[in-house]
Design a protein around this nucleic acid. Structure first.
Ligand SMILES: [Mn+2]
Ligand SMILES: [Mn+2]
Ligand SMILES: [Mn+2]
Ligand SMILES: [Mn+2]
Lengths: 221, 221
DNA sequence: GTAATAAGTTAGATGATTCTAACAAAATCA
DNA sequence: TGATTTTGTTAGAATCATCTAACTTATTAC
């Protein structure tokens, strides 16, 4: 009914529209590394299938049906990442590319079993919420997270999630023993480049660039 | 490099050629439920890639390269089936369709991890040998297996594998508590239809049709 | 050993997914 | 406001994977 390719477009659009509610053909093109004319015709196709609202020269939006379908693919992606980390012993920096493929497996029983073996987790290994079986996402807490880069000197926060994590960032965090759940205290902020010196666990003083702090989502303690 | 579609052709050809060493376009067409002209042009394509020996009107053969590649896909299929049964709690009748999809995942680390978690199994849940990382298959024992239907009254044998298992057969075996490893004694054979009455474990007298006995591979005790 | 049947091949078409080139509309700059 | 740049669209082509129709070669039946 819906191809692997179409699923990837839907998922990318879901991710892009999660904040602003809409996205441009250009953004989607860059996200997927697929040329604009290709994206354009795919959007028309998904509009035919009732998954996307497409009007010439207007921003793209997912329909309710499209949102739900996308969320169910994201669900499979995040459940898989959690399974790979919790049950197979992979590091959080290794799982995204595998999940990118396994998310397309057609077998409700397979993901049902994963969910069950994991004890119905609510978040993935990077702290992102796992949509439920109806495609509903628990945003309540998640939207309250703030960036570490928006914290002030003296703040103490809990490290809750990594946003748009790349392998490199996750490996960097590994090298500094900075894991989800860590209590981070902002010791000082360098005015010149906004880099932070923070302490957490056994680390007394670690310097984190603004580029890093911008990706770390935290919750005030 | 090689598509999911091409992988499925290779695998089907590997299975068909395992006995006779060669197969016809017609057989492959039936196996895959794809029309002959389609199969014909795919064989030319795989020949271009050095995976199949194709000559007009001659039987199809895999090249050494094709054999190895096919065996490595079969390896992924069988490791997956074993993982699903041993680590996720699926029944042996549920895993083939899921493995049919997961066998195409491109991630050496993923299958490496499965193999490790399973303790480097030599056979899959249906008793078929799992090719090693070089595509070599341990046929030594496997080729010595005989069909239960070829046994005589009074023979006692061990149930080692199911050949070309369908869901239905596996569910039937479940319903009779007939599992791999069972010691089966042939009590009598009905001359009219060659159905067997056998005993094993706590089952004193079970009737098995010739069609069933033909699929059960056993080893004399 | 011909006639009928089965198997294999060629040709041409279709839908999916991608591209480049060219053009049109919208947004930004001056 | 008019010129320039960016974004979006249309047109046309390529590759992959599939099909049907028509033809050819091989096998089987009488
Ligand atoms: Mn991911
Ligand atoms: Mn994907
Ligand atoms: Mn199987
Ligand atoms: Mn397959």
């Amino acid at each position: 009914m819906i191809s692997q390719t179409e699923e990837n477009y839907l998922k990318a659009l879901w991710n892009l529209t999660s904040t602003k509610g809409e996205a441009s053909v250009n953004e989607l093109s860059k996200q997927l590394d697929i040329k604009m004319p290709t994206v354009n015709s795919m959007m028309k196709r998904l509009a035919e299938k009732g998954l996307v609202n497409y009007e010439s020269y207007k921003p793209l939006k997912l329909t309710d049906k499209g949102k739900k379908l996308a969320a169910l693919i994201i669900r499979k992606h995040r459940l898989t990442e959690m399974y790979l980390v919790e049950k197979m012993g992979f590091g959080w920096e290794e799982v995204h590319d595998i999940a990118e493929q396994i998310e397309h497996i057609q077998s409700p029983a397979f993901f049902e079993k994963m969910d069950e073996l994991l004890g119905y987790p609510k978040i993935d290994p990077h702290g992102s919420p796992i949509p439920d079986k109806n495609g509903k996402v628990e945003t309540e807490q998640y939207i309250r997270y703030i960036k570490l880069s928006d914290c002030k000197e003296g703040d103490t926060v809990t490290f809750m999630a990594v946003s748009h994590s790349s392998d490199e960032l996750l490996k960097f965090l590994n090298s500094r023993d900075l894991a989800l759940g860590s209590k981070i205290k902002v010791k000082s902020i360098e005015p010149f480049d906004e880099s932070m010196t923070v302490s957490y666990a056994s680390r007394k003083a670690e310097m984190l660039s603004n580029k890093v702090c911008d990706k770390l989502l935290v919750r005030p303690v």
